[in-house]
């Protein structure tokens, strides 16, 4: 199956405010899907519906379906903790726990029942290697994660997400708090990660979307205006609004 996640007629409400309108989208397996659009357009709200982070906000409502491998993630049969194990997330600002590097990585696996020390050690090494951080931190795994630089912290957060062996990784503007060098490291990392994972990334930078993504979705005021292969969106957009945004006429 080529499609990993299908979004069908998705509506989302904060109280009475309708933040997402009739979104339909197919997210391809082991591809990078970028979500772009001006701030407040709903792209962050959208990405947070994919692992039900919006459940944490009171007074919100979801309509429609989001299918993960054909199964509706909002169905009663789905436990949200299990879903979040499958769909990992990396946030805008690096948010490591005030614990050691080691404890940060094993946080998820421990929650899902892995207690064996040897197994945990393996997970730590594998995840840190996967996030291209192993060589930098292997000698200080028991040091606080808060002592790392911003870029290292963000790669730690990626390592923490892949430690759960998720199928999808959501990234909500993962480089917006980082300097250009750290940003390029993360972008390279994403390039490698997509061999194993399906990645959805919200980005404020169109250049970034163009550089790293296979498909791009353009959001405007809660609507999905256009969705398609990145090359098409950036070269021959069908919608006038997409073209205006990409050519920098607004936003």
């Amino acid at each position: 199956m080529k499609v990993k996640m299908q979004i069908r007629d998705l509506n989302f409400y904060y109280g009475d405010f309708k933040a997402l309108m009739d979104i339909n989208m197919d997210i391809e397996r082991k591809k990078v899907t970028a979500l772009i659009g001006p701030s407040g357009c709903g792209k962050s709200t959208f990405i947070r519906t994919l692992n039900r982070m919006n459940d944490l906000i009171e007074n919100t409502k979801v309509e429609g379906e989001i299918l993960l491998d054909g199964e509706d993630i909002y169905s009663k049969k789905i436990e949200v903790e299990e879903l979040r194990k499958k769909v990992g997330m990396v946030f805008q600002k690096p948010n490591p726990f005030p614990k050691s590097i080691y404890e940060n990585i094993v946080y998820g696996p421990k929650r899902h029942g892995i207690r064996n020390k040897k197994q945990l050690d393996e997970i730590v090494e594998k995840s840190l290697r996967g996030a291209a951080l192993w060589d930098e931190v292997k000698d200080r795994l028991n040091k606080s994660a808060w002592e790392l630089s911003g870029g290292q912290q963000q790669r730690l957060c990626i390592a923490r997400a892949i430690a759960m062996e998720p199928e999808v990784i959501l990234m909500d503007e993962p480089t917006s708090a980082l300097d250009p060098i750290a940003t390029s490291k993360i972008e390279n990392l994403i390039e490698t990660l997509k061999k194993d994972y399906t990645i959805v990334i919200v980005t404020h930078s169109m250049q970034q979307a163009a550089r790293i993504s296979d498909n791009t979705a353009f959001f405007l005021m809660g609507e999905l205006v256009e969705f398609g292969p990145t090359s098409t969106i950036f070269t021959t957009p069908k919608d006038q609004r997409t073209e205006d945004y990409i050519t920098g006429r607004f936003g």
């Binding site: 436990e79 903790e81 299990e82 194990k85 899902h112 029942g113």
Partner: peptide, 11 residues
């Protein structure tokens, strides 16, 4: 199924 049981107990 292990994970699911684990989660059910937790619930």
């Amino acid at each position: 199924s292990d994970i699911l049981r684990n989660i059910r107990i937790k619930k």
